[in-house]
Write a protein that binds this DNA or RNA. Structure first.
Lengths: 334, 334
DNA sequence: GCGGATGTTTTTAACGTTCAAAACGTCCGT
DNA sequence: ACGGACGTTTTGAACGTTAAAAACATCCGC
């Protein structure tokens, strides 16, 4: 494997000149630059990243902790990772994966990776209510950016990018309203997660804005499963109240709703409009297709990387992005 | 951030002694070792990985190319990544993610990562028929290991780990047979993918072994979607032949089968036993739960890392692992 | 008390790059 | 012809670690 030294010898210049040819080509005289470049090409030279990192103390790697999977099913994680990777690469960086225990127990792992100079900073996701990581990293002066706000916290401890769940629900409500739905229910989650409340709030506000009823139209599911989504839908329908639209907190719950509706002889899309959240691969693959709120992964990733690698100015950057309503058969005009 | 030099000064030994305390503690006298360790602890010293890598020319990073998602939905990718990461960490290594164009166009990316010393080697997955990557990497003498065999190739160009799809199908068939099923259909894929043929073959052989019929019991779906699974199931049932068991090539197709059966007033598990493949998060979350063949991700990851990081002896290592049948309601005894 | 074996520690020299400063050339105004 | 300004190239040192060899210490047998 060729080194700067060998290229320098071949091009009959000093080592530093070759380095400059790569990092500051404007400093070289045109003919020298060309000669050096020819040698670089000829010897198939590729800079050794470790040597570079040692000297500059920047590794161009970004740490990302792979969520341990049993808690929630991350149906869109692969999309996120792909987008994140691609965004990082556009700036010459890469993603380093690692695992860590949840909560504060995981902090030594983050610290270690940073202290050993294996990463420049972190992208956090799967943010939880009162997530301790953000505050801890801030305190240690370790660069990071969060995909997702830390809920139930007055001020955010660092820069973040998030998707506006409230706006998403509102979009779903307005969409259903436009296709003639007047009694739109919300299928939510058990524990009052910040994310859940955000989306719930958007539904409530949009309904009020449009003069639609909300009382008795909220159901909470015990867990994020198709079965629970179906049961909750059944409970809702069993109250005897009319429902012609359902905004579900997740695609999985929405699938449950679709199933229960079908079971009762109702046609999703025709009799009841249903929407989900996250536009997981499932939404496209079921029939009727599930209308869902797609997170703009590419933009999210781009912002995350830009913020993390950008100049660390004083005030933390905050970006709230709008999801995109992907309309499919489950919400066809009734 | 403390360096070896500072620790050495603090412990009043030479730099090399501190290095030895970490890498070859047996060389130190007990009391020296303890003194050095105290200094290390006190100064919270963490070795700089870049310096180490520069000297030893081993980065302890393994490259993994994130599949671009639109081709197939990777419902178990997060499980795989988590397992791979965990296995790598058990050997002090980490996973570096990157993106690359498919096929031979991606090779420069692999080459570059290796040439710049950003990774020691690669784990390949999403192996395709006649995948060019393996042969190319072998030719360049770049270490790699493949999750998945290269199909339609007489000899494998390198070490691999794979799950025995044929054995999996056979397990499913035997399981259905044990619960009284006698006419077991196979729901397959469109294009004759190696993986598809492998699983199909296992079904056929097992049926023959058990004296079960196979003629007219194979259906091929055009794509991997719930809708197509349902349509194919409908086609199969419409032929008039009795079917009391369905072995599907994927969970998604199996879900389609479940839906079509339900639509026709048949009870999956009771009237027809259904099994899927890969035990994706969906299998657990639908109702009835879908019996599926779980890939032993932890073991797969462990083997991949062991092979990749192990001594490169002459003959390539090959490991064919058995999937595990996870039994749920969809195949309850009829 | 000496040669040798063994155990422990230090010295020297890299690994491949970039930073900072110095050196060298060339051109210009005076 | 001289000093300065600028553009280009080289020199020297450093980043933090480990490999290899050298140095030093200790113990043993004779």
């Amino acid at each position: 494997m060729a080194t700067l030294k060998q290229v320098a010898a071949h091009a009959e210049v000093s080592v530093q000149t070759v380095s400059n040819a790569l990092n500051a080509p404007h400093r070289l005289r045109a003919d020298t630059l060309e000669r050096v470049n020819r040698s670089i090409e000829l010897l198939n030279y590729r800079p050794n990243r470790n040597a570079r990192s040692l000297r500059t103390s920047a590794v161009e790697l970004i740490g990302y902790c792979v969520p341990s999977w049993p808690n929630h099913t991350h149906l869109v994680m692969d999309q996120f990772l792909h987008a994140l990777c691609a965004a990082a690469e556009r700036t010459g960086r890469h993603i380093l994966l690692f695992t860590a225990p949840g909560g504060v127990d995981g902090m030594p792992t983050y610290d270690d990776l940073h202290a050993r100079r294996m990463v420049d900073g972190f992208v956090l996701s799967q943010t939880e209510t009162h997530d301790p990581r953000h505050g801890w990293l801030k305190e240690q002066d370790i660069p990071f950016v969060s995909f997702g706000r830390v809920w139930k916290q007055t001020t955010q401890p660092g820069p973040w990018v998030d998707v506006d769940g409230a706006a998403g629900s509102a979009m779903a409500v307005r969409h259903l309203h436009e296709s003639g739905r007047r009694r739109i229910a919300f299928l939510g989650w058990p524990k009052l997660s910040g994310l859940g409340e955000d989306r719930l709030g958007g539904w409530r506000d949009a309904c009020k804005d449009l003069g639609l009823p909300t009382t008795g139209l909220t159901v909470r599911c015990r867990e994020d499963s198709i079965e629970e989504g179906a049961r909750a839908t059944a409970r809702m329908l069993d109250t005897g109240r009319t429902v012609d639209g359902i905004v579900a907190l997740s695609d999985i719950l929405a699938l449950g709703a679709l199933r229960e509706l079908t079971r009762r002889g109702l046609t999703p899309g025709h009799d009841v409009g249903v929407t989900g959240f996250d536009d997981s691969p499932l939404a496209e693959v079921v029939s009727p297709g599930l209308t869902s709120l797609r997170q703009p992964m590419d933009q999210i990733a781009e912002e995350l990387i830009t913020i993390l690698t950008g100049t660390v100015n004083g005030s933390p950057v905050e970006r709230l992005l709008r999801p995109e309503l992907v309309i499919r058969g489950s919400s066809a005009p009734g």
